[in-house]
Amino acid sequence: MDIAKEVLNGNKRAVSRMITLIENKDPVAKEIINELYPHTGSGKIVGITGPPGVGKSTLVDQMIKEWRKRDKKIAVVAIDPTSPFHGGAILGDRIRMQDNFLDENVFIRSMGTRGAYGGLSKSTGEAVNVFDAAGYDIILIETVGAGQVEVDIAKLAHTTTVVVVPGLGDAIQTMKAGMFEIPDIIVVNKADLTGADDAVMELELMLAWAPKIEWKMSVLKTIALENDGIEELLDEVERHWKYLEETGMLYKREETRYEEELVDLVTENIKESVLKEIKSNGKLDMIVKKIVSRKITPYTAADEILAGLKPNK
């Protein structure tokens, strides 16, 4: 199978295979990505993040349904944590999205974080590009249950939605750095629970102090299980895209995304080649021994290693 060609034709099996190749860091993947890349750039990337158990997967399920009514082709990347101890994972987001399993125009893919700590997996960006090239209009990314610092989604998505529920804390929580610095839209889900209006009020109060930009962020209420508030959420996401396009911010976001990805790629490559060199000739062991016996400091050792590297021609 010519995977690149079949992905561009929208062949589901090819898309599925390609994501596996990327996740497994198969050398073939790089060449196929190079072929696909010129065909990307038209899909809209929507991030859904927030603490575990707030209803992200259920919300995504309803968003898929609603966007299908608007005749959009939808891909979902659902990320769950990989165990740092055994390397295994339970990928359990899909179970909430059962209503959309058999829709020809919906593709759901689950991923483990595989050692990444920003709420995504290292392959998420590339998987998004595969879906984009395969003709999906909207790519929804559901992050792992995120706390305060898992904010990588904001660099990848065009529109980041932070989902919370009533009772997660007072106004101090909304002032803290991290999670509440990234949203373009805030959703208070399970809005039928006591305290929903208080939560909305506190979040709106926080927004009053937000830096003044043209985008007026809103706090929306949803009850995902009852499909309540979903239409309004989609309208808001689409309004945000319009804002991004009209102000040129879309281009800015893409720049941010690819600067980040490029720096990551270069850093990763340098790291791998440096480690390969110092591990292969036993140099690493030798230097570590010197550090442990206090003959040399870690800083001097690092300088020495870097100075001794042969520059790549």
Binding site: S83, G87, G88, A89, L91, G92, R94, Q98, L102
Partner: peptide, 18 residues
């Protein structure tokens, strides 16, 4: 399966098509 290092996609109750 998780502790054995595999990635488990658990989908609960499903019919053959799903």
């Amino acid at each position: 399966l998780r502790d054995g290092g595999t990635e488990v996609v658990y989908i609960g109750n499903q019919f053959p098509e799903g």
